[in-house]
Simulated scan of single mutants.
Amino acid sequence: MNLPIDLPPLKGFRYPREIIALAVWAYHRLALSTADVEDLLAARGVIVSREAIRLWVNRFGSHFADCIRRERPRPNDKWHMDEVVITIRGKKHWLWRAIDADGDVLDILVQTRRNAKAAKRFFQRLVSQFGEPRVVITDKLRSYIKPVKTQAPNADHRAHKGLNNAIEVS
């Protein structure tokens, strides 16, 4: 967490910017509850209510989440894509998943269909967010062929059941 030291205090807030930043950062980065953040700050000698932490998270959370996302390393250019059926309230849905070669989750999407339109929507989201991949590894679902060819024409598309084991394990 990088904060410039010479920032002016936030108007209308009792606590300095550094304490608010630490609370919001701990909530998002460490996935702590407001009670855990309250205990963390109390251990450092700062008495803050859970409600104040919740208000800080609601107000400044999106900014800190964007900063955390920017600090993440860029994903690998070799993607594994897969879909799995899940049941939600008795209705069949498809969970589309994509990971990179390091096993980091790129994106997930839940849809009611498993067709070319659904594959196109999912792959289009990935390409717009992370850029064009070098290699795309999928199972033998034919719905992947057209989206990969149109969205990433230079990508090497490998459709093989055994090669996609990395995402099957994740």
Results as ranks from 00 to 15, higher is better:
1 M>T: 03
1 M>G: 12
2 N>P: 09
7 L>Q: 09
7 L>I: 07
8 P>M: 02
12 G>P: 08
14 R>L: 07
14 R>Y: 01
16 P>V: 00
21 A>E: 10
21 A>W: 03
21 A>H: 05
21 A>I: 03
39 D>P: 02
42 A>N: 09
43 A>W: 14
45 G>K: 13
47 I>W: 08
48 V>R: 05
55 L>F: 02
56 W>P: 11
56 W>G: 04
58 N>E: 11
62 S>W: 12
62 S>A: 13
63 H>K: 06
63 H>F: 05
67 C>V: 12
73 P>D: 06
75 P>I: 14
75 P>T: 12
75 P>W: 01
78 K>M: 00
78 K>H: 10
82 D>A: 03
84 V>S: 14
86 I>V: 14
89 R>T: 09
90 G>N: 08
93 H>N: 14
98 A>V: 12
100 D>I: 09
100 D>K: 03
104 D>P: 00
106 L>P: 14
111 Q>D: 14
111 Q>Y: 00
114 R>P: 15
114 R>F: 00
116 A>W: 01
117 K>H: 03
121 R>T: 15
126 L>I: 10
127 V>N: 03
132 E>N: 10
134 R>Y: 00
144 Y>K: 03
145 I>V: 11
147 P>R: 00
154 N>V: 02
159 A>E: 12
159 A>L: 13
161 K>S: 09
161 K>G: 08
163 L>C: 04
163 L>R: 06
167 I>E: 12
168 E>Y: 05
169 V>A: 14
169 V>M: 06
169 V>S: 11
